[in-house]
Structure formats: C-alpha cells, structure tokens
Amino acid sequence: MGEIALGQYYPSNSILHKLDPRVKFIGTIVYIVSLFLVNTWIGYLFCAGFLIVMVILSRVPFHFILKSMKPVFFILVITMLFNLFLTPGEPVVKFWIFTISDQGISMAVRMGARLTLLVMGSSIMTLTTTPNALTDGMERLFSFLKVIHVPVHEISMMMSIALRFIPILAEETDKIKKAQIARGADFETGGLIRRLKSMVPLLVPLFVSAFRRANDLAMAMEARCYHGGDGRTQMKPLRYAGRDYAAYAILAAYLAVCIVFCWRHL
C-alpha cells in the first residue's frame, strides 16, 4: 500500500551487510575512482570481476542489482548514442546523415561499461547498508569537519529524521490528494498553468502538516532531553572489527592493481 522502498535496502546477513558502513562508503568511492583509472578491456574485465565477487558475497539476488539500473537506463542509452554518433574517427557504417566510426563504437561500449559498473557498484552499498547506518557512517567519516564548524551531527540528525518522515509524508500526500479529489478536484487535466494551480489544494495542507509535525517532533525531542551532540553517547557506536581492517586491505590492493593498469596502459 504505497510503501516506498527507501534506499532499496535488501535485508540479509552476508559479510558485506556486516561490514562497517564507513568501509562500504570508502569502498564505493575507491571503486568509482578505479573505473576512471582503467581504460582498457582487461582493466574493465578486472573491475567487472571484482564487482561480481562483491555481488556473490553480498547474497543479494542479481535481479535486485539489475533493478537499480532502471532509473539510469535512459541516461545510459543517451550517453552511448552520443558517443556512438558523435565521436570522430574511421567511418564504419554510414547511412543518411549518420556516421558511426570505429572510435565511436569503442567509446560507446566503454562509456556504457563504465556507467553500468558505476551504478551497480554503488547499488551494492545501498542494498547492503540501511540508510540509517549510512548516515551514521557519514557522520563519523566527516566528523573532522567539526573543526571548521560544520554542524556534522545536526546534518546527520536531519538526514535520519528525513528518512523517517519521507514515507509518512508520502502517505499523507496520497490521503490529501484523495480527499481533494472527493471534493471534485482535478489534478490530471488542463495545461501546465492549470495543473500547477490545481496543486495548491494539495501543497498547502501538506506544508501545514509538515510544519505541525516538525513542531511536534521538536517538542518530543526536547522532552526527551535532546540538546544537540554535546555530551551525547551512542547506542550503536561504530567500531571497526577485524573484517573491516581486512576489507580496507583488500580495497588497497584492488586500487593498487588498477593504478598499475592505468600506469602501464594495460
């Protein structure tokens, strides 16, 4: 019933699920960097191999990972087409005003592979990490920014509250929409201006409700002694375990291999 899958977390008990969110966050960055380091078929094959191992380790069914491609599929196709037709080089196919060069084919395939691996790689992080753990991980990773007065704790608190309230507000939007339709409102027909105007009966109540909720929640937080990050302890503090250090070591080795590929033009 209108349940929104946030961050697409797939519950399981795999080694990847158990890893510290910081490792997974840094791992994803390393993987993205590696995709831009390598530039050869062997390199891509190596990166793809690494990804496949991760998918197997994550115990997430492969079609879930494929599903993450859905929203970017359009962009992927456009990128590939652009590269296919607009890269200059030796013409291979020629019809009407289009020319496809050998360079174009190779570029399109390479861009396609890069983008596919990038999206799949980062989806492994979101599939194996709850949004909450990810927020926690980022709070810790970026805590050094506190020195330059970035409110890291507050930002992370805001993110986790947003995560909790997005489904509630989505449900509320649905309810208000239905209530207005029952009063004869029409959200579907008419030109752009008319449609924008027809959103007023939906947006005003939604904002009113969001502000009321924010007010209630702030009061509830204060009532439970919330006073910012100072002097606050954590119920689930992040602590590196043996496997996290091992994961960092593997990541370092992986990155080193990719650098070698890049350097040797393999």
Binding site: K175, P205, V208
Partner: peptide, 13 residues
C-alpha cells in the same frame, strides 16, 4: 457521493 476522510481538517487550504 460525498466522502469525508478521517481527520478531514487536514484538507483545509
């Protein structure tokens, strides 16, 4: 067929 939802005051705008 008029339908009044739960907490209908939430639709006032």
């Amino acid at each position: 067929v008029g339908l009044v939802f739960q907490y209908p005051e939430n639709q006032l705008f």
